[in-house]
Nucleic acid binder design. Structure first.
Lengths: 161, 161
DNA sequence: GTTAATTATATGTATGTACATCTATCTACT
DNA sequence: AGTAGATAGATGTACATACATATAATTAAC
């Protein structure tokens, strides 16, 4: 049954069919990786209807921050979640779909500057709405819990200092 | 300076150079994705010394669970963190490195069964030790906090029921 | 018992990441 | 001014994911 399938994957042990964790910290690491995969899969389902990927959406969202101004590739890359994203190639695909325009900067000719087309603005708006609605209805935590979660995620990374 | 660089990326706002989050739940989603990227990057640095990737390590770890018995591709796939992993191709690379052996099942000839070689067992042991040490020393949360984190991550996914 | 449906795996293609290298341009230094 | 070094972006390769399709073997239906 449908319900059964879903109950099974909420617990990490069921999702990866293992309960052999060294400790809770080990389990946390796997849980973060699994939840990230779950998040990406959820948004991919939404975005597929609009013909773009999670990463392409991320670039459009970043460009929106400066719209109608241009952004250079380096600035986009610095705002990406995955720091080794190959931004020029993501731009290639957005350009093919006429969602962005790319041109050489006249100030610094090494730079390529990119901006959203009206089509891109339009698509982004629809995608954002769908994603926001999905998050509001399908993510089963409240604002308070999200704050705790954010604090813990930032704590796990804090040893780098 | 080194310290400065690292302080900057602990906070999500600095890591992705944005503080325009709709709410804490939105920020949580980005924080989970960023932390997952951070975790993968950290383990990639460790595993590169041993010549394998994060995903290849994951498959070796899964095979260890049944060692010295075989596992079929489907069983491995069911235990992967990323559920759409293309397991046959990960096995291809492990086989090339002589870390696993693959043969047709005699019980069900559709199945390919895989087991670790002594070389694979040996490499996995070294990798696991390095990864475990890294986690113990570099992940700045204790067991109690990890339990809270696990509970919150499972809660965020619980609406699927 | 033969055929249809299902299952397990492999493989092809598009996309993305990680990282090395190449080219064009800019900046700094003499 | 002319050159060395740095920087921005593009591009090539290896690996991985997402998903469609192909192939072989098993199971189910008749």
């Amino acid at each position: 049954m449908h319900v059964c399938t879903y109950i099974c994957v909420v617990k990490l042990e069921q999702a990866i069919q293992s309960n052999k964790f060294k400790d809770e910290v080990h389990k946390s690491a796997l849980n973060i990786l699994y939840t990230a995969w779950w998040l990406k899969t959820q948004s991919a389902i939404i975005l597929k209807q609009f013909g773009i990927t999670h990463e392409q959406f991320n670039v459009l969202r970043i460009l929106k921050g400066k719209h109608p101004d241009d952004m250079c590739v380096r600035d986009i890359a610095g705002r990406m979640i995955e720091k080794n994203s190959n931004v020029p190639r993501i731009i290639d695909r957005l350009e093919l779909k006429k969602l962005v325009e790319r041109k050489q900067s006249q100030i610094d000719k090494r730079e390529t500057v990119i901006h959203l087309t009206p089509l891109g603005v339009n698509l982004l708006e629809k995608c954002s709405e769908a994603i926001d609605t999905h998050r509001a209805t399908e993510f089963a935590i409240n604002n308070e819990e999200a704050m705790q979660l954010n604090a813990l995620l930032e704590k796990i990374r804090s040893k780098e200092v």
